[in-house]
Amino acid sequence: MVPRPFRVVRYRRELPDTFTLTLEPLAGPAEFFFQPGQFNMLYQMGAGEVPSSISGAPGRPRELVHTIRAVGNVTGVLQRCRPGDVIGVRGPFGTPWPVAALAGRDLIILTGGLGLAPLRPVIYAILARRQDYGAVEIIYGARSPRDLLYRRELERWRGRFDLRVHVTVDSASPDWHGNVGVVTNLIPRTRIDTCHAAALICGPGVMMRFAVQELVKLGLQIQDIYVSLERNMQCALGLCGHCQLGPFFVCKDGPVFSYDRIGPWFEKREV
């Protein structure tokens, strides 16, 4: 339950309501090891604690990176953090994306909105061992071109010969030459081998539900589809009870689940 103090070393405004903090520990080990998909509890003194997935590179454990959207009390205060400020960090918690186990597969990384942040460590991990994977396609949707997270990085990834990046927005002015339409629209455009493919999905609940339907239509098996869930999390230790979804504690049994495990619960209402 006791956080470790971390100093903010970099603040970066991503979008009007979204920002990235780079942190380094003030005490204890200088390296913070984590696996893609895991999250930390970030504590802002006097305001409280919030779960936040780690969005940095697992291969660079000396900097802890979190991309956060200011949507509430604590995240609102975190948005005012500047280099030199100190916050508390507990973690890492939760199950990771099965990055190593997916070696040899074709991959669809499908995400919307801020959902790209928890998947960025996966993209870094895959790019660090690109030869271990088959075709990799990133599908990303946002509300408008102005709401695209990590835009320059997306452009860099798009420029690579070994990645296909599809970006779509809900509506755009004519200077946007990319796709317009929901993210699930792009799923049939992928050129992966569905017999050997896996999908990693992170985004709002509706998006994930429809994305799974499209992927299954394409021929993917539900056990090859992984989703990351979001719930009220307070202790992150599987004790406080808030993150329950059926038999699961999302904080310790998740947040990453294979869809064959979580699907039946995911599709029930208000559980």
Binding site: G112, G113, L114, G115, G141, A142, R143, D147, D170, S171, G181, V182, V183, T184, G203, P204, G205, V206, M207, F210
Partner: peptide, 9 residues
């Protein structure tokens, strides 16, 4: 689907 704020939540 485009009508619901797909990415907002």
């Amino acid at each position: 689907l485009q009508l619901v704020d797909f990415y907002g939540s």
